[in-house]
Design a protein around this nucleic acid. Structure first.
Lengths: 345, 345
DNA sequence: CTGAAAGCGCTAACAC
DNA sequence: GTGTTAGCGCTTTCAG
């Protein structure tokens, strides 16, 4: 309601407050920064003046002198991917809760990522959060050097802090679920959009359980262009995988998106899921819950991952974390839905 | 490769460049800002010095003196909603193309939106892009006042620029599609997560075509908590809508998410889509394309919407737009998939 | 505990 | 054309 008629008056600055409260700039500064050393009486006078003229500190000025911001740079993969979208949402939420703003840059291509990172660095972000990493690790490391703390969330990290789901355990659970249903020919399908490290860990979990059950591992790779599926470096057809004498009866996909593609695939070939083919995914994206999809999968606790990431980054900034990168992993839980069942006999 | 061993040397400033090139600060400034008035020879000397010491302008300093940034504030709805996620992705992409960075704030609740907006304003964003709007319009307007240009993308706007799909036309097309298939009892399902204005326009399109075909409009509203469906203010059961003598044979949902919920609903009641029930959605989110969903819908050209939004905002900032808010609407196209068919007889 | 003063790195008049 | 200079609004020594 103040300054009616002075619509375009410049916003009040710290000196306006100082003048009104009849103190010096620095005292006002001490008050707004919650410095320990200011007499209650002064503080009261200043706060009063602040509210009286509706003063708000100018973030831009503060940033300049501090040479740092309260902005987190977030390197995000394809937001069209529900897993990434949810991750981005949770990161924004938890950053916001801690008084941080987020600046998103896309990481679809190597080039875009590098440019985005440089930009984030120019803006002097307080920290960088990788939700996906498309660039070359070493180059990225060089770029960020010791400039700002960096945390990788559920994606590859050769350096910097890391929080992620326990992929190994999750994959073991998924594979055990299939084994315990009575499946013998269980394949692992690797979707290339899954980060290398995550894929490796999930595959390792799969292999471990297969070995322990005395079963032969069968590993396939999606290839998106030209579309196809590879076994080792040999191209295989969908027919071959799902029909024929050596067909598999169950598939563990390295992510939900791949699992859903598999579902489409089975539909087209007239193969019934779960009667003739069991499918397990990974991530538990929103899609997986749809009645028409109804996918058994390994859920990633995305809210918890985000919270842990922000918390870790904040602690790192506060200097209350050990020098070497910390790595935290959170437990993953299976969600059993309708895409898995005992094999037909 | 420079400054090995001086790892923590402070980054070079404009005066370092000036000294090296033996010119004044302002000449360097003129060069980096591409001011018209600087002799080629000088320019060369300066550019050379810049690359020699690896100078990068300090954005924070520039922001302080200009009192504005090259950051767009983006008010985004629920990123778990694929429509919003895709919109956010496209906005980031096009902003980035124009040299802008984006700061996302969430707008799930009224409170969160207000707080987010204040924060954006404190950061002196160059403009604000609404991808969703949960707050009270008038309060929001007051907050932003004449501070920064604002654009609404596919959401309510009583003021500020606007770009959106042509909801009226899209809804007409959708309804006509159903009518031309031979449906007579066609309902409109309003999902409350759709912005009021959009909903109104879509409903108007629906009503217009129904009237023109001499059919009775039947309007339902989702209610999320407690879950249910309302007709007027009377609660109706799913049974009542899809079974019984006065059952509808086709539904036009105000968005895809609602349409998919409808699909689940039909599945549970054992009603076959599209044989016994045709469903049309709105938006064409990624989900709609899945083989198991395969939804007929009205597609929103999200990339184009984003491009138009960024472009309009940039032009508004450049002052090359008329004073009153501009409103642009883009044509919507129907995508006919498997959820619609001629009614059973 | 408070005030005076020196910047942070850049832009933009305004002289020369 | 180019250099000089005065800020932008805040933090932070350093004296008192």
């Amino acid at each position: 309601m103040s300054n009616r008629g002075l619509a375009f008056a410049k916003p009040p600055t710290i000196v306006d407050v100082a003048r009104l409260a009849d103190v010096s700039k620095s005292t006002v500064s001490n008050v707004i920064r919650n410095a320990n050393c200011v007499k209650p009486e002064m503080r009261a006078r200043v706060t009063q003046a602040i509210t009286a003229i509706g003063y708000r500190p100018n973030i831009l000025a503060r940033q300049l002198v501090l040479q740092r911001t309260k902005i987190f740079g977030v390197v995000v993969g394809d937001l069209a991917n529900p897993f990434h979208a949810e991750m981005a949402k949770q990161i924004e939420r938890h950053a916001s809760l801690q008084g941080y703003r987020v600046m998103f840059v896309n990481s679809q291509t190597d080039m875009a990522e590098a440019a985005g990172l440089e930009s984030l660095l120019e803006y002097r972000v307080a920290g960088i959060i990788f939700l996906a990493h498309a660039g070359m690790p070493e180059r990225t490391r060089q770029l960020i050097a010791g400039k700002v703390p960096t945390i990788f969330v559920a994606c590859k990290a050769d350096w910097g802090d890391l929080v992620s789901g326990d992929d190994l355990q999750g994959a073991k659970d998924a594979t055990r679920h299939l084994v315990s249903l009575g499946h013998r020919r269980i394949a692992y399908f690797a979707d290339p959009i899954v980060e290398d490290d995550a894929d490796r860990a999930r595959r390792a979990g799969y292999r471990a359980v297969m070995a322990e059950a005395g079963l032969l591992p069968i590993v396939f790779h999606w290839r998106r262009s030209p579309p196809g599926v590879l076994r080792g470096n040999r191209e295989v057809t969908h027919q071959e995988v799902l029909h024929g004498p050596k067909r598999v009866t169950a598939i563990f996909s390295s992510n939900d998106l791949g699992a859903i593609e598999l579902l489409d695939w089975a539909d087209k070939l007239g193969i019934k899921v779960p009667e003739q083919l069991s499918i397990v995914g990974f991530d538990d994206i929103v899609l997986a819950k749809l009645a028409r999809i109804n996918l058994t999968t390994v859920a990633q606790p995305q809210a918890k991952l985000a919270e842990l990431a922000i918390d870790t980054l904040a602690r790192r900034l506060a200097g209350s974390l050990p020098a070497p990168p910390v790595r935290k992993s959170v437990e993953l839980n299976m969600v059993i839905r309708g895409s898995t069942a005992v094999p037909e006999r």
